[in-house]
Design a protein around this nucleic acid. Structure first.
Lengths: 104, 104
DNA sequence: CGTATGGTTCGATAATATGGAACTATTGAA
DNA sequence: TTCAATAGTTCCATATTATCGAACCATACG
């Protein structure tokens, strides 16, 4: 684990983004992260209330990361995650807003 | 095969819609169907250019149908498919436009 | 009737998700 | 420095889902 791999903005795909959000758990995670906008949340912070094993949660974060939705950086003992807001709006303007509007 | 099952508008879920569109093949299918707006296309018409077995194609149409994205009716020997445009805009206003804008 | 068309369904294999257990890295305390 | 706690990843086995060939079904037509 020598740092996380993130796709370049140009490599983010529509099907990839939709696939990453095609799951209630990941929709909630992104919602939580979006509330902070440019702020960060650790995995456990973002997953507050989501009852599931760490391994499954880690898997979901990986999906979001691989799809280009979030950027993860290790800070001390925890991982700081933030939505790649600018990158996503550059690649797919308006998409994220249109989707997350409906996530209560 | 006594007709197709379609979810009620209220039962269409965000994760379901995103999941159904989280695939390049299905994105293209919907794009083709959308070009006809309120018109219909048979499965083979919509799949023109998509090189794949009938069974796989049938599977993809089923995913779109189960997610509430299309309505399928049997007409003679073929199936007529159309996008559930009004239903989707009632359930998730603006979502489909925002997504399909990026499907070239 | 037989045959062509336009699909669906079945069944086997390939790919992906879940979750327990073990592991790693960092921090803090004894 | 050693021990334990925290925060998460990775590995592996099982469960779910996708792909595609083969068989099947319904309709139209000669």
């Amino acid at each position: 684990m020598t740092g996380f791999v993130h796709p370049a903005t140009a490599d983010i795909t529509l099907a990839g983004v939709l696939g990453a959000l095609a799951d209630p758990v990941r929709l909630k995670l992104l919602k939580k992260l979006l509330e902070k906008r440019h702020g960060c949340l650790s995995c456990t912070e973002a997953a507050a209330g989501a009852e599931m094993p760490k391994s499954t949660l880690s898997h979901h974060f990986r999906i979001l990361r691989d799809a280009g939705l979030i950027r993860t950086e290790k800070l001390g003992v925890e991982n700081r995650n933030r939505v790649r807001w600018e990158d996503l709006n550059e690649r797919f303007p308006g998409l994220l807003v249109a989707i997350m509007k409906f996530q209560s």
